[in-house]
Nucleic acid binder design. Sequence first.
DNA 1: TGGGCTACCATGGGCTACTATGGGCGTCAA
DNA 2: TTGACGCCCATAGTAGCCCATGGTAGCCCA
Lengths: 152, 152
Amino acid sequence: MDLFLSHFVNRFDAKGRISAPAPFRAVLAKDGFDGLFIQPALDAPALDCGGKALVKEIEALLDSLPPYSREREDLATALFGASEVLRLDSEGRFLLGERFRAALDLTDEAAFVGCGHKFQIWEPRRFAAHLEEAKTRARGLKARIGVKGQRE
Amino acid sequence: MDLFLSHFVNRFDAKGRISAPAPFRAVLAKDGFDGLFIQPALDAPALDCGGKALVKEIEALLDSLPPYSREREDLATALFGASEVLRLDSEGRFLLGERFRAALDLTDEAAFVGCGHKFQIWEPRRFAAHLEEAKTRARGLKARIGVKGQRE
DNA sequence: TGGGCTACCATGGGCTACTATGGGCGTCAA
DNA sequence: TTGACGCCCATAGTAGCCCATGGTAGCCCA
């Protein structure tokens, strides 16, 4: 099951390094991508992270837009222009750029949140709040689906 | 019959481990998932647990929503972000995170409740109360069905 | 039908490997 | 030269692995 699941909170050390959670590293290793693809999430104060699978997904999204169109150029810039590929050290740690840390208000800790095919990095408190909101909305959504369809 | 049925109450040991009931382990083994997928239930003070079948169900639910939509992101966060995959030790025990234990008010015991394709973990007293309520509602429902059709 | 035996299960505890984290040192580049 | 980063080693805490034990439920046999 090569999915990013669960969430973890790790801390930055004095050098600004932080460990990627071991289970996530295992998924990345299976993905065959030697490194970590990172980009700011478009609609949340978080970073989207992943491996080959995530990059492919983004390419597919771009391919769905007409070549040379304004939308495609914008999206490509927004997504790839702001992204980085980081290398993990032999202990599975990486150095998060100042730009990213400032954008997320990260100080001494960061939350790693599994989202299936990718994972996100959040400021822990902010994520806790976001999770509560998401749960509330998901409850409403589930209720609607439950009425229309079957199951759950 | 690969369903989670019946309910069991087991206790946490000094290390915080707890045994998954043997019948449930048998179902998980048949499911072919080496581990236990756990997430907070959206609408009850309980945890939803299961194997591959449960994860697939969630993926299917997500896939039914448009990619990059707000609903999908919310649901993915609420479902996957709050979930964990735990491994069972060779005796079929697992370690429940502090987060989950606190959320359910679990102290020294936990109730494992079969729900067909998944099972739930409850604080035993709370579950007893919930069961009574459910029974009452079920009686009402049965009575209504009994009136329309025949049978019982 | 009753008594004894056995296999399974929940639980306990020791040990080890792994993980997250800390810190030193060399190298490369500004 | 100095700072930053990559590589390496050290360490505490913990999660997983293995073996032990007591109780019980099911089974067999008389």
